[in-house]
Each structure stands twice: as structure tokens, then as C-alpha cells.
């Protein structure tokens, strides 16, 4: 077969797997969110649909599909329809550059475990895309022609812009250490247990807090603060359009966890694992183990995201802003300076 045909087939397959895998992962995150919240409140949680309630999220999605799609009369119809698409589309687009492992050889063909491997602005692409994501929420709030939606949308844009700064700055320390914007290389620079978390603990904490704010999760879920704003930016959405916002939130959560694992916890690196198992570079098995390691490392963070939501109350808006601008930003800047000085001394 021709070279380009094989490559585009492999690419298409990878895209198919990523998109569907993500949506299923999001569905199960919803399930676990409900389960964990139930356990925390001494309840049982969903247990009726399928064994242990495992098909609950699919029943929910199916229900959303069947629901009536209501568009307010005075809404701006075009933007109202396109806002959820922007949200979910951008949430998924980020996965073009996120690697879940290195590569393997299949019939002489080198297959990478990411859609666009070795893209030299990978990290910038992720940060840029997540800032575009705010358009989805703001447009949703604005086009609904509802004051609560508008407030939610505006809150989300202010919040995201504030925390994007500290998020981006907290990663500069990582960039200085690994000297690359390519996620593959950042992970490779951490091989052998030299994980960035040991060199950048402050950077990690800032990134973690900003990630909570960027994904609109409690304690920073002001754009959808139910007691104040009815439902926030998605008040006027129903049916699967609402479902898309919901899925986008969970996909963003997965993205944040993937970034934490890749940037701070060595990605697929586990000291001595691959040597002990005797998996050589480029074998399919090694790639599978790498994928498993990345996902396995993501699980504690996903759990943290969910547990935090059911433990902490929401910040007040002024507290949110003063935390972002007066604490996170100076700390992130100080972190860059300290990292730079230490690197100068030890070089």
C-alpha cells in the first residue's frame, strides 16, 4: 500500500480512538463523580442501571438526546447553537498534541501514541486552545439573552483570563528545566525519576490551583454558581446542547490531569519499570504499558478533582480575584526568578 494511505489510515484511527475514548472517559467521570459524592455523604449512589449502576451515564446521555431542545425566542440563534460546539470542540482539540506514550513499530511503520507527535509548540498550543475555550462559555452566556447567563459568561471570562496568567507562568519553571515546548521532550527530560515535581513543587501547586479555576470546578465554579445564577452560562440550554457543555467540563478536567502527569510527574516514566519487565524500545507491549502508566497516574488527580468538589465551599468573587492576582501571580513570578537563580548557580 502507499505510504500516505497507511499514514492517514493510522491517523484517522487514532483520532477516532481519542475522541471516543475521551467521551466515554467523561461519561464514566460523571458516574464516579456521582458515586464518590454519594459515598462522601454516606449514600450509595447510582446502582440501578446495569451492574453497580455502571450504565447510568449512558442512560443519562440517551435521555439528553431525547429531550426537547429549547431555544429562547430572543436568543441570538447562531451563537446560541455554536457555543456548545466551541466548548467541546476545543476541549477535544487539545488532545492533538498530548502524548500518552512514546511509539511502537507496526509492520515497519512507526506509530506514535499521540496525533501530532514532536510538534515544537505543543505546550503553547494547549495553553492557547484553553484560552480560546472561554469563547464557548462567554458566547453561551451572551447569546442566551438572559441576565443570569450573561453574568455567568462574564464571570467565566474574567476568571479564566486571571488564572491563565498564573497557569502559564507556573509552567515557565518546567520549560526552563527541560528546555523545550515539545511535550514528548519534556517527558523524556524527566526520565529516571527526575520528575519536575521535585524541582518545582511551588510551580505544581500554582498549576493545580489554576487548573481548578480553569476547569470551573469547585471551589472556583463561580460561572455556574447555582444559588446565585440559576445555572450560570448554561441556564438557557437544554437537551444535548447542555450535555455538550457538561462533557466539555469533564474533558477539560481530564486535560488538566494529563498536563499535571506529563509536566510534573514524569508522564510514562516509572524508574526501573521497563527494564525489569524487559520491554524494549518500540515494542507494542511497551507502548501499552506506557499508556497504562499515564492513565494510572491521572486517576489520583481525577479523584482529587472530584473529592475537592464535595469537600470545599465556593469562593466569593472578590476572594477569587484577590487570590488570583495578589497571591498566585506574584508567587508564580517569584518561582520563575528563584528557578532561574538556582539554575545559574548549579550550571
Amino acid at each position: 500500500m502507499e505510504q500516505w494511505l497507511v499514514q492517514s489510515l493510522v491517523l484517522g484511527l487514532k483520532m477516532f480512538l481519542i475522541v471516543n475514548g475521551l467521551l466515554i472517559a467523561a461519561a464514566y467521570l460523571v458516574y464516579f463523580e456521582r458515586k464518590i459524592s454519594a459515598w462522601i455523604q454516606n449514600r450509595i449512589g447510582p446502582n440501578r442501571v446495569g451492574p453497580l449502576g455502571l450504565f447510568q451515564s449512558f442512560a443519562d446521555v440517551f435521555k439528553l438526546y431525547l429531550k426537547e431542545d429549547i431555544i429562547p425566542t430572543l436568543a441570538n440563534k447562531g451563537f446560541h447553537a455554536i457555543a456548545p460546539v466551541i466548548s467541546i470542540g476545543i476541549a477535544i482539540a487539545v488532545y492533538a498534541v498530548i502524548p500518552f506514550g512514546e511509539y511502537f513499530y507496526l509492520g515497519g511503520e512507526k506509530v506514535y501514541l499521540s496525533i501530532a507527535p514532536h510538534i515544537n509548540v505543543g505546550l503553547l498550543f494547549i495553553l492557547g486552545m484553553s484560552s480560546v475555550g472561554v469563547y464557548g462559555l462567554t458566547l453561551a452566556g451572551w447569546s442566551s439573552n438572559n441576565k443570569y447567563s450573561l453574568l455567568g459568561g462574564l464571570r467565566s471570562s474574567a476568571q479564566m483570563i486571571s488564572y491563565e496568567l498564573s497557569m502559564g507562568l507556573s509552567l515557565i519553571g518546567v520549560l526552563m528545566i527541560s528546555g523545550s515546548l515539545d511535550l514528548m521532550q519534556i517527558v523524556q527530560s524527566q526520565t529516571g525519576g527526575q520528575w519536575n515535581i521535585f524541582f518545582q513543587p511551588l510551580g505544581f501547586i500554582i498549576f493545580l490551583v489554576s487548573a481548578f479555576a480553569e476547569t470551573n470546578r469547585t471551589p472556583f465554579d463561580l460561572p455556574e454558581a447555582e444559588p446565585e445564577l440559576v445555572g450560570g452560562y448554561h441556564t438557557e440550554y437544554s437537551g444535548m446542547k447542555f450535555g455538550l457543555f457538561f462533557l466539555a467540563e469533564y474533558v477539560n478536567m481530564v486535560t488538566a490531569c494529563a498536563m499535571m502527569v506529563l509536566l510534573f510527574f514524569g508522564g510514562w516514566d516509572v524508574p526501573f519499570l521497563y527494564e525489569t519487565l524487559g520491554l524494549e524500545q518500540g515494542s507494542v507491549l511497551r507502548a501499552l504499558v506506557q499508556f497504562g502508566v499515564v492513565v494510572g497516574k491521572m486517576i489520583p488527580f481525577l479523584f482529587l478533582f472530584i473529592q475537592t468538589r464535595w469537600s470545599l465551599p465556593r469562593f466569593r468573587y472578590d476572594q477569587l480575584m484577590s487570590l488570583g492576582w495578589k497571591v498566585m501571580l506574584p508567587l508564580a513570578l517569584a518561582n520563575i526568578a528563584v528557578t532561574g537563580i538556582i539554575m545559574m548557580i548549579f550550571q
Binding site: I36, W39, I40, Q41, N42, R43, I44, Q307, W310, S311
Partner: peptide, 12 residues
Amino acid sequence: MTFVEMFKPKVT
């Protein structure tokens, strides 16, 4: 605190 709570007996 919430983590400990997860393993307490359920009341449902």
C-alpha cells in the same frame, strides 16, 4: 475528613 467519611456505613 471527607475521605474518611467515604468508608463509613451507608444510610440509604
